[in-house]
């Protein structure tokens, strides 16, 4: 188990390293000189040159990459060019919006999808199953930002139950913050729930076709016990994989939804930073998100290996 974990961890580190190279060098070829952009159109050549020097932009590319990488390893993501504050601080300010939003959406989508998946698998081929599966087809096809617009119209503009956008900050208390996140979370959760419900259903159906389930049935166990105690646990493995993938997707997927609701999250931060050529902020956020994806997948892999020893040999 330990050897397996070590091997997987090595892959994680290599992945992160390569990802950092890609992010850094893609942004390196971006048109537009950050120093010139900061100083505006009327800047003199001397001023631009001096600022480039001060920002360390005249160092060789490799030196800058290595110092950036070493900094990140120590938790220092550098300093924003436009705000002159540490990138970690900017990210921390935004994560408190994006992370709860992603978690809320993940919770909602799981709470909807798992019961639907179990219900439809248990009643395979019935009219209820067909209807629910048609519903999930529709759910997958709905663009989440369009659904968000409808939610805003119904619950914010017409009924005025919740604010149409903006975020009051957690200082105002838990409830106002949650109220601002509830519509975006629902909009994000719906398509994810549709996908997850389909995965849960097909995983469960596959497990129900296994020999040991037939054995359990043959020895006279009631259908409910077979479903809940024998089938469900094994069926949860693919569901967990998708959940792991969805978490990362939701964290990044908030980027467009934040736009609908004017939420000051990571997405908005990236948009602003790209427009202002504040590349170090963009690099920081992308590396953070890629890191989250890789680490979540690593943890999911470890959980499998712990649950199923056969997987460790791979």
């Amino acid at each position: 188990m330990l050897a397996y974990a070590a091997r997987r961890l090595l892959i994680v580190l290599v992945t992160l390293l390569v990802a950092s190279v890609i992010v850094f060098f893609v942004l390196e070829i971006v048109p537009g000189d950050p120093a010139r952009l900061m100083l505006g159109l009327n800047a003199t050549e001397d001023a631009v040159r001096a600022l480039r020097e001060q920002m360390g932009l005249n160092e060789p590319v490799l030196t800058r990459y290595i110092s950036w990488l070493v900094g990140m390893a120590r938790g220092d993501f550098g300093e924003s060019l436009t705000y002159s504050v540490p990138v970690t601080e900017l990210i921390a300010d935004r994560v408190v919006v994006s992370l709860p939003l992603a978690l809320l959406a993940l919770g909602l989508s799981t709470a909807i999808a798992i019961p639907v998946g179990i219900f439809t698998a248990a009643r395979r081929g019935t009219r209820a199953d067909t209807a629910a599966m048609a519903g999930t087809q529709l759910g997958i096809a709905i663009p989440n930002f369009w659904f968000a617009l409808l939610l805003v119209y119904v619950f914010a503009v017409t009924l005025q139950w919740v604010p149409a956008g903006g975020f009051p900050g957690w200082d105002e208390g838990l409830w106002p913050g949650l109220r601002a996140l509830i519509l975006p979370a629902i909009a994000l959760a719906l398509p994810q729930a549709a996908i997850l419900a389909r995965v849960a259903r097909s995983a469960l159906l596959e497990t129900l076709a296994e020999d040991y389930i037939r054995t359990a049935r043959a020895k006279g166990l009631p259908a409910n016990i077979v479903l809940w105690r024998h089938a469900l646990r094994n069926a949860m493995i693919p569901v967990l994989t998708i959940l792991g993938l969805q978490f990362a997707f939701l964290l990044a997927g908030t980027i467009i939804i934040e736009n609908v609701f004017f939420l000051p999250g990571l997405g908005q931060l990236v948009f602003q930073a790209i427009n202002q050529r504040d590349l170090i902020v963009v690099e920081g956020v992308v590396v953070l998100l890629v890191g989250t994806v890789v680490i979540v997948n690593f943890l999911v892999d470890l959980a499998y290996a712990w649950a199923d020893p056969r997987l460790r040999r791979r």
Binding site: T15, A252, I255, I274, V286, V290
Partner: peptide
């Protein structure tokens, strides 16, 4: 395989936004 793993680790939507915003 490892390369495609790495590409899959990039959230597609975020990267697409980045590419279109930058270029």
């Amino acid at each position: 395989m490892r390369t495609s793993d790495i590409i899959f680790a990039f959230p597609a939507l975020l990267s697409a936004v980045m590419i279109t915003a930058i270029f």
